[in-house]
Simulated scan of single mutants.
Amino acid sequence: MAVGARLTPDVLELDPAAATDRIVAELRTIVGKTLRRRGAVLGISGGIDSSVTCALCARAFGPERVLGVLAPETDSETETLRLSHVVVSTFGVPYVVENITPILAAARCYERRDETVRELVPAFTSGWKLKVVLPDVVGNDLYRVLFLVVESPDGRQERHRLTAEQSLAIVAATNFKQRTRKMIEYYHADRLNYAVAGTPNRLEYDQGFFVKNGDGAADVKPIAHLYKTQVYRLAEYLGVPEEIRVRPPTTDTYSLPQSQEEFFFSLPYQKLDLCLYAHNHGLRAEAVADAVELSVADVERVFRDIEQKRRTTRSLHMSSRLVEPVAEIDLSDA
């Protein structure tokens, strides 16, 4: 872009047909030739990212060589399972439903989480609901910490600031969910000689919005290079049903409804996409402020938040470290 030019949403435009052809060709090469697998397994959440990944895999391998894994648990929204069925039906993909609640209960996922919650809300029982949220990055220079929001059976809500230890404990217990789902996906991949396809978009991959050895684990990640705005464009082209395309992105992790924005990103994806693009291309805050309808100071806050998340989550991208190299195992061409 020229010096002094202003960013517009047009910078994220893409040719969906060309993008689809490129991804499908790469999937066939990676899965068939590099990994020597017969097809793909992926988790289906009823959200935009897993829907697009499902459609791409169906095009790459044929629907009959794709398996969708629907893995609800006690905190899942009813709508999630319904929309997941819509996805597999739309693209003609075989699927299995694996209710992971018994596994999570056996691992004391809910019990461990609730023990920490009761440190702040002693009355918290199975009749209550909860979620955790972050303060908005806009207009806020304070260090942002997680807050616990609970709702009693009569609908009364309370909000409590979490200590660092309490935040870690709740998130660690909740991470059982993503890791259990991935364990189930790899079971089916092993028995079918398939690869596991991950579903992160660029925002999630760049900012570390995933659980290591959970939803971050996969053999191939077909849309990790695409901004979320571009994923929505691809969804329209691929025929993802409108009711999925208009549904706000959610975490579907806690018993209270929770958007990705309030849990992690702090901005709507349309604005964060443009801020991330600008930051990735070395543009100043002034170049993007008008496009995202934020002040220059707030865009600078978003830029700092992007870098902070990259630093904090860097280890999530790392493979196991070796003390010394093992020369006989060379993955440089993998």
Rank of each mutant, 00 (worst) to 15 (best):
R191G: 04
R191P: 06
R191C: 08
R191M: 11
L192I: 01
L192H: 03
L192S: 03
L192A: 02
L192D: 02
N193P: 04
N193R: 08
N193C: 06
N193Q: 09
Y194R: 00
Y194E: 00
Y194M: 00
Y194H: 00
A195K: 00
A195F: 00
A195W: 02
A195N: 01
A195L: 00
A195C: 00
A195I: 02
A195G: 02
A195V: 01
V196N: 01
V196G: 00
V196M: 02
A197N: 01
A197K: 00
A197G: 02
A197V: 00
G198Y: 02
G198P: 03
G198K: 02
G198T: 01
T199A: 05
T199I: 04
T199G: 03
T199E: 01
T199R: 04
P200V: 05
P200F: 05
P200A: 05
N201V: 03
N201I: 02
R202M: 02
R202W: 01
R202P: 03
L203D: 05
L203P: 06
L203F: 05
L203G: 15
L203C: 09
E204M: 05
E204Q: 07
E204G: 04
E204S: 08
Y205D: 15
Y205H: 15
Y205M: 15
Y205Q: 15
Y205A: 15
D206Q: 12
D206W: 09
Q207M: 14
G208C: 10
G208L: 10
F209V: 05
F209Q: 10
F209M: 13
F210V: 06
F210Y: 15
F210K: 08
F210Q: 05
V211L: 09
V211W: 13
V211Q: 09
V211E: 10
V211I: 12
K212H: 10
K212E: 05
K212T: 10
K212F: 07
N213K: 12
N213H: 14
N213E: 13
N213V: 11
G214T: 10
G214R: 12
G214L: 11
G214Q: 09
D215E: 11
D215G: 07
D215A: 09
D215I: 14
G216T: 13
A217P: 07
A217G: 08
A218G: 15
A218R: 11
A218N: 12
A218V: 13
D219S: 07
D219A: 07
D219F: 06
V220M: 06
K221Q: 08
K221I: 04
K221L: 09
K221E: 07
P222R: 04
P222L: 05
P222E: 08
P222N: 06
P222A: 10
P222F: 04
I223N: 09
I223L: 11
A224P: 03
A224Y: 07
H225A: 13
H225D: 14
H225C: 10
H225W: 12
